[in-house]
């Protein structure tokens, strides 16, 4: 085995912002979940209201008057949808709908029982298509890509390994040198996840995975451009070889 002359070793950082919102279900997934939940409701035991509401109380009255009463069995009546079979105020051949009595909410309600208003998953950064924002594409993982100078190429930030400093330390300190100290990151492992061979100068680039939790990337050098991109978008920015070699390291 011939040992190669130690070529330049570089450590690159694959810095990810993990999803903030859960991924959207596909049509098939949501249909299947609906089917299973309906089936489960059909097979569910009758809700024991007598256990939760004391007899003769106001809350029992409110609950009982909010419920839909099933059709009861009367002698000499023909029921096209089968003879009713009612136990504990529930038609046994269908699912039971338990209706929770609700008061009309006031606009200035501050109690804990007020209805939940969800924040939209599409943010301002999505609308203005601000690729440098960390608040975009909340359902996907974002990766930091940088480009130094107008002639440079879009790629994961990489740094020269000078002495025998560990790869992950080089990568983590390097990102702070170009992007400021306001970064709260966490290195996934000391081990590189991939080695990329640069054909031109024969340098080896070792990729280190890391996650960002807070803070932001503010380039110190004006020439340095950066973008937070999803896997799909990275495809359009880097060359094909680079994408094919790193594609399976990236999450959706």
């Amino acid at each position: 085995m011939t040992t190669k002359a130690p070529s330049t070793i570089r450590a690159a950082l694959v810095l990810a912002r993990t999803p903030i919102v859960v991924p959207k279900l596909t049509k098939f997934e949501s249909q299947y979940i609906k089917y299973k939940s309906e089936l489960e409701r059909r097979l569910m035991w009758t809700f024991p209201a007598y256990y939760y509401f004391k007899k003769g109380t106001m809350s029992e009255y409110k609950f009982q008057s909010a419920q839909k009463k099933p059709i009861s069995k009367q002698p000499g009546v023909w029921y096209p949808e089968g003879i009713p079979d009612i136990k504990h105020c529930r038609e046994r051949s269908t699912k039971q709908e338990v209706i929770i009595p609700k008061e009309t909410p006031k606009s200035d309600d501050t109690s804990v029982s007020r209805p939940v208003v969800k924040n939209p998953a599409v943010t301002r950064a999505d609308e203005s298509n601000d690729l440098t924002s960390l608040e975009r594409q909340l359902r996907n993982t974002l990766y930091l890509l940088v480009k130094s100078g107008s002639k440079g190429e879009w790629k994961f930030p990489s740094f020269d390994v000078g002495s025998n400093q560990p790869l992950h330390e080089v990568a983590e300190s390097g990102i702070r040198e170009i992007g400021g100290n306001k970064l709260n990151t966490w290195t996934v492992s000391r081990k590189p996840v991939k080695v990329l061979n640069d054909g031109k100068d024969g340098s080896l680039e070792f990729l280190i995975k890391s996650r960002i939790f807070s803070g932001e990337f503010v380039p110190k050098n004006k020439d340095t451009e950066f973008k937070w991109l999803t896997k799909e978008e990275i495809k359009d920015f880097v060359n094909k070889d680079y994408y094919d070699n790193t594609e399976y390291l990236l999450d959706k």
């Binding site: 903030i20 960390l134 909340l138 306001k182 807070s214 932001e216």
Partner: peptide
């Protein structure tokens, strides 16, 4: 780390904490 956040159904009010100091 403690800061690791589990994805939720809807985003929080403050989506990202920018003011991080080492």
């Amino acid at each position: 780390p403690m800061e690791l956040r589990v994805p939720t159904d809807a985003p929080p009010r403050e989506i990202w904490h920018y003011d991080y100091t080492l």
